[in-house]
Design a binder for these strands. Structure first.
Length: 112
DNA sequence: ATTCTGACTTGGG
DNA sequence: CCCCAAGCCAGAA
């Protein structure tokens, strides 16, 4: 709605994640910082978790472009989107090394 | 109102 | 590289 001052921080995170271009990835901490909350990396993860069942076909959030600081896909409590996330990233041109890590120096998103 | 949980990060040893 | 402690917030029961 039109109440940004009362809007959840989560909406802020989603807005930033939506700005991540295809072929690039950002870390939770990065998203938090760009949203204006340097120490809220955790909340970003939780926000995305809540997004799992969101029916946002009109306003999709590229959650798959958010990875942890190690450059790996974070493990969830339950199996599911992990392999999918990797597939989606690879489909966008993101490459993984033998350790299952992303070449962050090459794919990490640089905000402008 | 309280308690528990959950896609994390960073710094220090 | 690994392990530990602290910081942070929202939603469900």
């Amino acid at each position: 709605m039109t109440t940004p001052t009362r809007a959840s921080r989560w909406q802020r995170f989603y807005a930033v994640v939506r700005q991540i271009p295809s072929g690039k990835v950002a870390t939770y901490g990065q998203v938090a910082a760009l949203s204006g909350f340097p120490r809220h990396a955790r909340q970003v993860g939780y926000a995305l978790f809540a997004l799992r069942s969101a029916g946002d076909d009109e306003d999709p959030v590229p959650w798959h472009r958010v990875v942890n600081a190690r450059g790996e896909i974070s493990a969830r409590s339950e199996p599911g989107p992990e392999p999918l996330q990797r597939v989606m990233l690879e489909a966008e041109g993101v490459t993984f090394d033998t350790f299952g890590r992303i070449a962050m120096k090459r794919h990490q998103w640089r905000a402008e």
